[in-house]
């Protein structure tokens, strides 16, 4: 269904390195944290692209780049054919309207001194063309209703709401300017299970209603599977495998994807005996000093000499039509 939509966002070889400096007065660059190191993908209208990966893999830096909160070291990202990093003036204002973000922590991402009405209405102050002044209160009430909150709560403060309700406020704020793309950075990971499902359902119904495109960044692979049409798996600043939800979860070919999927606990005690967990040794290497060749090779059970010498590209492999960055890509079923 999603593949039918036009491609609205293209990300091409995006790179973000943060310099490591030494010295106080005369700062000298001694290295770089390669947070995002050559990421490419496309986002279509009305689809959800899930980005999964462990902490430190660069998924949140990627979100900041797409929001143009960080400037890339190299590469480009185009929205409707225009490079977002070259925009300025009215074009940039339109971009800021068009791409919105929902943050992880509903406790710190809302200003405690502002009423809900002010929080959700603030985008209209900056972009008055969306809603004329006299119309704002009604707009805010509509938004509250849209995300399942009572319009009468417009004068309440964030502390009067629970975590799940606050996340709804954050979503209403993101929707205020009628964006096309919403970047969701771990939007449900701070919520309890029973509340998480409510917010996931809300995001899905809003998508259908408003034809939104989501970039859904999360570490919870089950949630990502549930909400995503396509999924990209990140490891140390690179996408190692990308494909439809079905391809990634049912026919993964990259060993990291396979290990990641196999390690997710399945809520079924009967699966305990026959579940085969691929155990990775050690931790993720530092992004300041990633391994040569394939970045996953230090933890990979398949690693050979070639992996250290030659970096595998994210291309279609013989075994499967979806791209995988492994020299020795092979199918393996890991999800029961």
């Amino acid at each position: 269904m999603a593949n039918l939509g036009e491609s609205i966002l293209q990300v091409d070889n995006l790179v973000k390195h943060f310099p490591i400096t030494r010295g106080i007065l005369f700062k000298k660059k001694v290295g770089a944290v390669k947070a995002v190191d050559g990421v490419s993908f496309e986002l279509h209208k009305g689809e959800t692209l899930g980005i999964v990966g462990e902490s430190g893999c660069g998924k949140s830096t990627l979100a900041k780049l797409l929001m143009r909160l960080e400037h890339p070291t190299a590469g480009r990202a185009t929205l409707h054919g225009k490079d977002i990093f070259k925009m300025s003036g009215s074009e940039l204002r339109r971009l800021r309207r068009n791409v919105q973000m929902v943050m992880q922590d509903p406790y710190t991402s809302l200003n405690p001194r502002m009423t809900v009405g002010d929080i959700i209405g603030e985008p209209f102050e900056i972009h008055p063309e969306v809603a004329p002044r006299g119309d704002r209160e009604r707009k805010v009430q509509e938004l509250l209703e849209l995300v399942g909150l009572s319009p009468e709560h417009i004068n309440r403060y964030p502390h009067q709401f629970s975590g799940g309700q606050r996340q709804r406020i954050g979503i209403a704020r993101a929707l205020a300017l009628k964006p096309e793309v919403i970047v969701c950075d771990e939007p449900v990971s701070a919520l309890d299970v029973s509340i998480q499902a409510q917010v996931v359902n809300l995001l899905e119904s809003l998508q259908n209603e408003l034809q939104l495109s989501y970039i859904f960044i999360a570490h919870d692979l089950s949630v990502v599977r549930h909400i995503s049409d396509r999924v990209g798996v990140m490891y140390l600043g690179k996408i190692v495998e990308i494909g439809t939800e079905d391809e990634i979860y049912n026919r993964p070919t990259h060993p990291y994807t396979q290990a990641l999927l196999s390690a997710v606990p399945v809520p079924d005690p009967m699966a305990r005996e026959h579940r085969e967990i691929i155990r990775l040794e050690g931790d993720v290497p530092s992004p300041a000093d990633p391994p040569s060749g394939c970045r996953f090779r230090t933890r990979c059970w398949k690693a050979q000499e070639k992996c250290a010498l030659e970096e595998p590209l994210l291309i279609r492999r013989a075994v499967e039509p979806h791209p995988s960055a492994c020299h020795f890509a092979e199918l393996r079923h890991v999800v029961a």
């Binding site: 692979l221 089950s222 999800v335």
Partner: peptide, 21 residues
């Protein structure tokens, strides 16, 4: 609770939820 968790081994359509707080 059991019904409201998305499962890795099963892509459902709409998640069942527990209403309220």
């Amino acid at each position: 609770l059991l019904e409201s968790i998305p499962r890795l081994d099963d892509k459902g359509t709409v998640l069942k939820t527990i209403k309220g707080l």
